[in-house]
Structures are given as C-alpha cells and as structure tokens.
Design a protein around this nucleic acid. Structure first.
Lengths: 196, 196
DNA sequence: GACTCCCTACCTACTAGTAGGAAGAATGCG
DNA sequence: CGCATTCTTCCTACTAGTAGGTAGGGAGTC
C-alpha cells in the first residue's frame, strides 16, 4: 500500500515532531525527507501551524478509536491498561516520543491553536483511564485506595515520565517499568511481580 | 544582590530553555530579555552550544550539592524524597519544566555534547534516588517489593511525567500527585492517604 | 598598555511563505 | 469520440525576516 503524498507528509511530520520537536523541524527537512520540494509542501499545507494542528487533531481522532477498540477487545481493566501502555512502547520502539508529551515540552513556543489541542489530548487520556479504572474498581479488579482521578493521573504520569527517561537514556526498559509496578500495586489479584 | 551579566544571562537562558526549549530560544530573545545586545551575549558565550553545555553542567553541579544537602538535613528516607520532589514543584511554580526533561524532548535536535550531559543528569537522579531508597529499605522505612533500581525509576518517572502533564494542562496538582501516591505505597508505616 | 565589556554593523545560512508556470489528469460539452 | 477547460500537483525562483556568528571599535578599569 502506497501512501498519498499528503498522508506521507503528515506521517513524516509526525516523526519529525516526535523526535526533534515542533520548533526544530522545518519545511525544508520535511520536504527533503519526503522527496518533494518545499513549495509543494506549502501547496498541501500552506502554514506550518495548519499542518501541525491538522496532524494533532487527526492523531487524536485515530487515538480515540484505538482506545475504543481496546475497550471492545478486552473486558478486564488490567488487560485494557496493558494494551494502552503498549501504545507508548510501540511509539518508543519506532523511535518516537509520545506526541503530546513532546509538544508539551515546547508549550511556550507553540502557536495558540496547538496548545489547546495538546491540552485536550491529555484530557482524553485521563478521561479514558478514569473510565477504565472506574469499571475495574466496580468489577473488583482494581483497588480504589486513592481515588479514580488520581489513579488515572498516576498511570499517565508513569508512562509519560518513563518515555522521557527512556528517551534520554536511550533504553527501552524505563518506558513501561514504572507503569507495570504501579499496575501491580493497584491490582487486587496481586500476582507475583516479575523481576527484570 | 545584583547578578553579574554573565550569571544573569545563564539564568535567563535557563528560563528560556525550560519554557520554550533549546531550539526555540535564540540569542536575540536572550539579549532582549537581558537588556543587552546580541553581540554582547556572544562575547560571554561565543556559541549557543557552549552556553547550553555550561548551563547544564553548572545546573548539575548545583543540583548535586542540593541533593547532598537534602541527605544531610533529613535522615528519614520519606522526608528526603519529599524534599527531592519539592525541587520539581519549586521549578514548576516558577513557571518552568524540569531542565533535563525539557531537553530530553528535543534530543534529536540537540548538539552531541548536550545529549551526553542530559543522560548524565538522569543518571545522577537515579543514582541518588536508589541510594536514598536503599537506606530507607535498610532502615525499615520503605518496602523492597520491586527492587531498588525500579523504585528509583518509578519515583523519577512520576515526577517527570507529572510535571509534563501539569505543564500541558496548566495545573499544579499533577506535578506531585502521582509521586505522593507512589510514596505512600512504598512506605511501611502506611499512614492514611490524604484525599485532595 | 592590556583587558573587559559592550556596542554598531555586518555576514551567511536558513526560516516560513509566495508568485507564477509546466505537466498531467479529470471534467464538460458539441 | 475530439477538444478545450479546469483542477491538481509539483516545480523553479523568489521574498522578507531571523538564525547563529563575526569584525572591529569605543569606553572604562586594572
């Protein structure tokens, strides 16, 4: 399957943003790595800001349906959360940071339209996590010692933080390590923890 | 106390890097926000890369002594860790991301000299945390269910991740929320968790 | 006299973005 | 069908502005 030029550009742009950041990627980079001229990139996406905004909103749309698919595929909270965490690992193994984590770092240098979208993306994560945790608690699979919203925040923080630490150290283990430790703590079934 | 020009420049540069990122801050920005001309900034720091490298290595030196001071001031692991976490909150309340977290996001766009320093900084964090946790476990204050190094990674991940989530959402609570939840889990004394 | 600090003026390379045209595919119509 | 028109995609060539960085000079200080 061969991607259309437009989709190929979006894909390359996503990679560049998730490795270099929004400010540090240029239309010249994007053009070169897509085998096209700079002016042609502008034909598809007149402004850099438009490109990024579209990219993120499409990403959010995809992500939303991926989360829905996870909920459909797994009925247990634990399995759902592991599948969710796997998304972070997948990105990492493709050499990329979490999109919105990367954008969050440059927040002050971002155009206003992007900031709001990044914020919305984190809310999406937190709401989905809270939902899954709520159902998990109701089903007796997860403990409810610290409150649903705090658990959601805890899970997201470990994955974002783990990704950044792993990214800096160029190691894969930190990405999921903290998440798994937290998940084991939250689980009522408390199976023995696997030491690495 | 009035800072020398050189120190003022370093301080402003740190702020700019911890809000906009390395790529998105320019000598023009730095000059303007320091009330000096661009060429004068170059007089003090000929290359941007030099400035950043010096800044980070000085930051690491300061941080090292701060960590040593924390160890001296508190004998209990829990108190030490809370003081450590407070450093992240202090930065956040001054409107800044963790320095090395921010740099980590742009890793691919960073000069080689900086990448290594960023990596060393994370190692510093992890080694100090592992040390504190080890002593805490030996003193019976902390549980040792998942291994010293994993606990260090867990604590660092929650703080880095919490900072980024809080930064994107422009809220302070996420910064320490996950860290405190994890710390409560690790504590053998298990005092009741304060709900927010 | 040498050094420090800061300046104006400048350089080259690169940034996002534009103008206008060539080639080809899609479309409308007699 | 043939033929012209329009639309899409991409191009070369350009703009103005900004990036990091340099040359060289003036004023104060050791």
């Amino acid at each position: 399957m061969t991607l259309g030029t437009r989709d190929a550009l979006l894909q390359r742009a996503e990679y560049l943003i998730r490795t270099r950041g929004y400010s540090a990627f240029s239309y010249a980079d994007l053009a070169e790595s897509s085998g096209i001229r700079k002016a042609s990139v502008h034909h598809h996406f007149p402004k850099k800001e438009d490109l990024a905004a579209l990219l993120v909103s499409r990403y959010i749309a995809n992500f939303t349906s991926t989360l829905a698919a996870i909920k459909r595929a797994d009925t247990q909270a634990q399995a759902r959360l592991i599948a969710y965490a796997q998304l972070f690992l997948d990105g990492f193994e493709n050499g990329m940071l979490p999109l919105c984590g990367a954008l969050s770092a440059e927040r002050s240098a971002l155009p206003e339209s992007l900031r709001a979208t990044v914020c919305a993306f984190f809310d999406l994560h937190l709401n989905w996590l809270a939902d899954v945790v709520r159902e998990g608690v109701a089903a007796g699979e997860l403990t409810d010692a610290i409150g649903i919203d705090r658990v959601a925040l805890l899970l997201l923080s470990t994955l974002e933080g783990g990704s950044f630490v792993g990214w800096a150290l160029q190691k894969t283990d930190p990405v999921l390590s903290a998440f798994h430790d937290v998940l084991a703590t939250l689980s009522t079934s408390r199976q023995e923890l696997a030491r690495p």
